[in-house]
């Protein structure tokens, strides 16, 4: 069974490594240590330095930039304090993108885990379950740009979906128009990521011993009840991890929005479909004038804060007494 401590959550619980078999015999340092202990720093440093210098320090530098007005290297930085943040909170475009991201995380999350749970009711014993699991996972490895281009073709005003609608006597819909495209984005995202969570949850469900289900059947539990009272409680820890992963991933949705909005609408994605990541990308690339890096960096810090808060909330909501088979 899963142990929730393995969660890669932002809380970043560092697990203490299991002491390697013959520990250092506490004499003089280095004398009787296994050879691999001597290799500790040489083996670790390249990755540690790269990660620190090019990832962690830039993240901190991003905080600094977010407190300034700056058009990029070569121009002057002007201290603004928290003005970038307050300006963002009053900026309609940013607020819309923020709400959109939130809707996507929440609405998409309900859909993703709704489908995941339903699949778990049947996938334990369905015919061809291995096949189903691997094909459902497939979209995960496909570029979202390609997905957007292919599905975008089907959803085009004169595309196949509207043709089918015509046969059924329904009105054609402007799927990729400003008002509907975001719903299509969420749908596309749910389609492409659910398989991943199905794979995660099912790999946890696989380790539940079958006799539990046999007992449940004997006392007359339906398939739904078997899921509700056996599978779900015993996979809840993994679900908690999945929920955190979903939150982290849904807050950085970018490609699929760009891909869905590239065809129908020249230029930038319509306001109704922007996520924070898209909004930030636009503010760096094609704002016309000089890029406002301070403001864009502040958006990045916002995402970090929201990620942290949402992850914390998710953990609180999914927290409960561990159910464990003894």
């Amino acid at each position: 069974m899963g142990t929730s401590t393995l969660a890669p959550g932002p809380v970043g619980e560092a697990e203490r490594p299991a002491p390697a078999a013959p520990g250092p015999y506490e004499t003089k340092r280095g004398k009787l240590r296994p050879a691999r202990e001597r290799a500790f720093w040489p083996f670790l440093l390249p990755a540690l330095l790269g990660y620190t210098v090019l990832f962690v320090l830039p993240a901190l530098y991003g905080f600094w930039v977010s407190l300034n007005k700056w058009a990029g290297p070569g121009s002057d930085m002007e201290w603004k304090g928290l003005a970038n943040y307050t300006a963002l909170l009053e900026n309609d475009a940013f607020r819309t993108s923020f709400v959109n991201t939130f809707v996507l995380a929440l609405g998409g999350g309900v859909a993703v885990f709704g489908f995941t749970f339903l699949s778990m009711v049947v996938l334990r014993q369905a015919k061809g379950r291995g096949f189903i699991r691997s094909v459902v996972f497939l979209p995960m490895i496909i570029s979202l740009i390609a997905v957007g281009a292919a599905i975008g073709f089907l959803l085009n005003p004169n595309g196949a979906v509207n043709t089918v609608f015509g046969w059924l006597g329904l009105d054609p819909q402007p799927w990729l128009g400003p008002d509907m495209v975001f719903r299509c984005v969420i749908g596309g995202l749910v389609w492409s990521s659910t398989g991943f969570y199905v794979a995660l949850m099912m790999s946890a469900a696989d380790s539940i011993p079958p006799y539990l289900y046999e007992d449940a059947k004997l006392i007359g539990a339906t398939r739904w009840e078997q899921f509700r009272y056996i599978t779900l409680p015993l996979t809840w820890d993994v679900f908690a991890v999945c929920a955190v992963l979903w939150v982290v991933n849904s807050l950085k949705v970018f490609e699929i929005v760009i891909a869905f909005t590239t065809a129908g609408t020249p230029g930038s994605p319509p306001l109704q479909a922007r996520t924070v990541a898209v909004q930030q990308f636009l503010s760096v690339t094609n704002n016309g004038g000089a890029p406002d890096l301070g403001s864009a960096a502040a958006m990045g810090v916002f995402v970090l804060i929201v990620t942290t808060v949402l992850v914390w909330l998710t953990r609180r909501i999914t927290r409960r007494e561990r159910v464990e088979l003894s």
């Binding site: 890669p8 959550g9 932002p10 970043g12 619980e13 560092a14 697990e15 203490r16 490594p17 670790l44 990755a47 540690l48 990660y51 990832f55 962690v56 830039p58 993240a59 530098y61 991003g62 930039v65 977010s66 990029g72 290297p73 982290v248 807050l251 950085k252 924070v276 990541a277 930030q280 990308f281 760096v284 890096l293 864009a296 960096a297 958006m299 990045g300 810090v301 995402v303 970090l304 990620t307 942290t308 992850v311």
Partner: peptide, 24 residues
């Protein structure tokens, strides 16, 4: 142990937070 956690922390830093420094 702490170093392992330090690496794991990177998984929860959103790309958006480092994008601007990367461009710079």
């Amino acid at each position: 142990g702490p170093l392992t956690g330090y690496f794991a922390m990177g998984m929860s830093i959103p790309l958006q937070t480092v994008v601007i420094p990367i461009v710079v």
